[in-house]
Nucleic acid binder design. Structure first.
Lengths: 364, 364
DNA sequence: TGTGTTTACGTCAACGTTGACGTAAGAAGA
DNA sequence: TCTTCTTACGTCAACGTTGACGTAAACACA
């Protein structure tokens, strides 16, 4: 019997997930420069010159090569090209966002796309769903793909694992959340300020029992928004009631349940601050079914497409998503063209958009 | 003087957009298998074996190699790897959608991402904004990148230009709109049916003067929805009034203007069908400012996140975005693993979601 | 003990492309 | 006319990796 002793390390470094469609009728191979060269009766290098628009090819030869290209459906192979070239740019940047289907991430992605468009960089977008493991996996994959840069809305708390990549020259721009244990660019908004504004706005409407719903406290933005909420209460000399702060609310449905629960208390809150767009929607739903949308104040974090069409229209703290995406793109492009200045930390101020739901005064 | 005669073709086949950050402090070069091999005192091939988890490396050697990998921050180079490998999969599929920031495209993208996740394929997403030229450019770029497959919500009308790629074995799945001049997979919904349902629903509420707003008629889905609208009118023996059909409405603001205009006619429509989500929003806004949201019927095409929270809640024709994305992913994966069956043409039925705005009866 | 088999490596070439450099023919200049 | 320069090519090697194949040592089996 053979007993294998020793280390159990047997792990491949290369992800093995890629389906090795073992059989599959092999595709008709793409033609290469060699084929084109043969058909045009020139050397491969000449084809390369023509295809790349380099000088050093006569008009007739150029003609012949281009005809051969057409005839053979030749397509340049970017992989081979960047492998050989000096400055090997893959022309890909990875965008690791929270959930591409969510309007915040989607808007951000779109703004980023626009900012990068002219530079010929493509965006590989991924949803992390707040799963740190996925984040690591995707980063590994992107590094393996030799992505030129990363845009990261991190699911993880600590980012030391990116140190080596960053040192190796990979530009990384954090969005929405700051890096920890890594000194790189970031574009965030002032969440403390935003939540303070939201809360203070309700306080100004004479509310004192203001509840707050928030996402997982481990998520930095959530923690900051909670801090802003508490700061505003403190500034207004409103005592903090732990029962009115519900963190770790993760879905629209859960938000609705939580709000319903709070409303059915003996001393229900008279206003709500919701820490994220889906929580706001849940809250609206709960207020609606309790028939209290016009009695209870509500200020939501994050604006969304139809917020002004709800009854009452929603007062929100708006982040300028296009601006954020634009800044991220700008920084990334600068890094891609060799900018080695110290990290930028852009912090944008959110704005309060009063529409009605936040201006409901305290019913006395 | 030298006069250059002959063809003016001087165009490079390779996109030249990629910023050639000519100067830029060159990045510290990534270490390669060679470096690892040297440090570990083995051959490059052995490193390859260890890194790929292939058999044929003793435990001690494996150990040494992995240590060297760690020390040097070695990262596998997928580009070089797929270049050499037989079945050269890039592990990228392109998703060419209308507008990634729009909830329909974003939802689709997210569903596609989920469907493809387990297979280790990444999605490179692009917004086409209904610009056929951009479509072509992006396709060219993706082919150059040797994408394994394409998901296409086309901006163009004719798709012959994809024939060569398709023949070369590139799986292409059309979404939302059917291919023309190309026989490949598609996943669409029955737009005629959807618009018929919408219109018939209003007719059932005794409406006779039903207006329709639609996107550019050149967009296939828009044309089909118009056809469905007209079919429903015909079936109900309602005569078609050309003044009530407004095609080529392209934005939310324009939709609002058009609706306002129609409402101010001598014989205003009593109900609206809107052919796309942003048009619906525009219509809601116009009805709202005219104070007519509760008098005028409205059925919108496409559901969206807060449609049920508006007053009155919006009756819509819903496309099951997750289902569509799932089907697309399923087909694509099958193709990627070698399925050569004749093209699938999945046509899903939309559903009418009655919520209020479509059930407003004709005010007599 | 010899022979076949297995294991653990190594060597070499190739994937598709481009940089470095070579060269022959023609143009320019003395 | 001879030299030098320029133009339009070609040749070769290399980018980082892996497939095909070779080989020496260890092992199995009769």
């Amino acid at each position: 019997m053979l007993v294998v002793k020793g280390s159990m390390r047997n792990t491949a470094i290369v992800p093995t997930t890629l389906t090795q469609s073992s059989s599959g009728p092999e595709r008709p191979a793409r033609s290469t420069m060699k084929d084109v060269a043969q058909l045009a009766g020139v050397s491969v290098k000449t084809v390369s010159r023509v295809v790349n628009g380099e000088p050093g090819a006569s008009v007739e030869v150029r003609e012949r090569v281009l005809q051969a290209v057409d005839r053979l459906d030749y397509r340049h192979n970017l992989g081979a090209s960047t492998l050989r070239r000096k400055d090997a740019r893959s022309g890909i940047v990875g965008a690791l966002l929270q959930d591409i289907g969510n309007s915040f991430s989607a808007g951000l992605l779109r703004a980023l796309e626009d900012a990068l468009r002219d530079s010929g960089v493509s965006v590989l977008a991924v949803s992390l769903d707040e799963e740190p493991e996925r984040e690591r996996g995707v980063v590994a994959d992107l590094v393996t793909r030799r992505a030129d840069g990363l845009v990261l809305m991190p699911a993880s708390r600590r980012h030391e694992y990116l140190l080596s990549e960053h040192r190796a020259g990979l530009p990384i721009v954090f969005v929405d959340r700051k890096p920890h244990g890594l000194d790189c660019d970031s574009v965030t908004i002032d969440n403390v300020l935003g939540a303070r504004m939201a809360t203070a706005h309700l306080v100004a409407g004479s509310h004192r029992r203001i509840a707050m719903l928030s996402d997982l406290e481990e998520i930095e933005t959530a923690a900051e928004r909670i801090a802003g909420y508490r700061a505003a209460l403190a500034e207004a000399d409103v005592s903090f009631d732990p029962a009115l702060l519900v963190p770790s609310v993760r879905s629209e449905a859960e938000a609705a349940r939580v709000v319903a629960g709070l409303l059915s208390r003996a001393d229900p809150p008279t206003a709500f601050v919701t820490g994220r767009n889906i929580l706001t929607i849940g809250a609206v739903r709960a207020l609606r079914s309790a028939g209290l949308s016009r009695q209870v104040g509500l200020v939501g974090f994050d604006d969304f497409p139809m917020a002004d069409l709800v009854e009452p229209a929603l007062t929100v703290i708006r982040q300028d998503v296009r601006r954020i995406g634009g800044e991220v793109g700008r920084i990334l492009l600068a890094r891609l063209s060799g900018d080695t200045a110290p990290p930028n930390h852009v912090v944008l101020a959110p704005t309060l958009v009063p529409r009605g739901s936040g201006e409901i005064p305290l019913a006395s």
